[in-house]
Simulated scan of single mutants.
Amino acid sequence: MRKREAGFTLLEVLVSLIVLALIILGLAQGLRFGVLALHRQSSLIDQHGDLDAVDRTLRTLIEQINPGNSHDAPEIRGNATSMEFTSELPYGAAVALPDRQAEIRLLVDGNHQLLLRWAPYSHATYRVPPQPTDTPLLQGILRVQLSYWSSAGTSGWRSGWDRSDIPALIRIHIVFLNERGLRWPDIVAAPSRHRL
């Protein structure tokens, strides 16, 4: 009998190549899954990061609503879809203002943006009032639902506020457009009640 030559048979090489191809295919699918998961996680973090910043901004603005003083009543008016009040803008937003006090309106515009429309606050009446600045907070908003908690008289949530005092609580419910598929808990904040 002839001595068998050293090496691999064709069948052994084919089986090795098939096993190697299956291993590479598994690694590629695992890498693809990892990249997709990382992309999804980063987009969720971006979305929630924006929402967290808006949440903190709105809470701060509500907590710093001007409660008025013994001579001036607080300036807050609101309905179910928008609210106007006087408050302090965050430090970074009010570079050009001397005291950060601003007249603010919160609303959703026709482009489905949650807007903060503000102008510098002054006790004086201008012949030509300053033009307000629109600051978009969020995109893709269907509507905002505002409600106001009254602790005086008949307590409970109201859909409007036109009284001479400030509400005990303000609730903001943001409804997103369907394509975003987002839901966010209501923002409930209490205005400071210390008179100046």
Rank of each mutant, 00 (worst) to 15 (best):
W118C: 02
I187V: 02
S150Y: 02
V144P: 04
I104E: 01
T81R: 13
A37S: 13
Y121K: 07
L89T: 01
Q139F: 14
N79C: 04
N66T: 06
A96V: 10
T9Y: 13
V13K: 10
P132L: 03
E5D: 11
G92C: 07
E88K: 10
E75T: 00
S192G: 10
S159A: 05
W184C: 01
R117E: 07
V175Q: 15
G110F: 11
A28W: 12
A53H: 15
Y91K: 13
I104H: 01
T81S: 14
D109N: 15
L106S: 00
D72Q: 04
S16P: 08
L182G: 05
N66G: 06
P136R: 06
L25I: 04
E12G: 09
R32T: 15
A190T: 00
S164F: 01
H194G: 12
P167Q: 00
H194Y: 13
I172Y: 02
R105D: 00
V15I: 15
V188T: 05
A189R: 07
D134G: 06
R180S: 12
L137E: 02
S155N: 08
Q131W: 14
P130G: 03
V128I: 14
D52F: 15
G68R: 02
G181Y: 11
S150R: 14
S192A: 10
R183M: 09
L89M: 05
E84T: 14
R2Q: 11
R56C: 04
V35Q: 10
G92K: 00
L169W: 04
R32I: 09
N111C: 01
S87W: 06
V95D: 13
G30T: 10
T154Y: 04
V15L: 13
Q113V: 03
R56G: 08
R4H: 15
P130N: 09
Y126N: 12
Y91C: 07
E63H: 12
I141F: 07
A189G: 01
L182D: 08
L36V: 03
W157T: 02
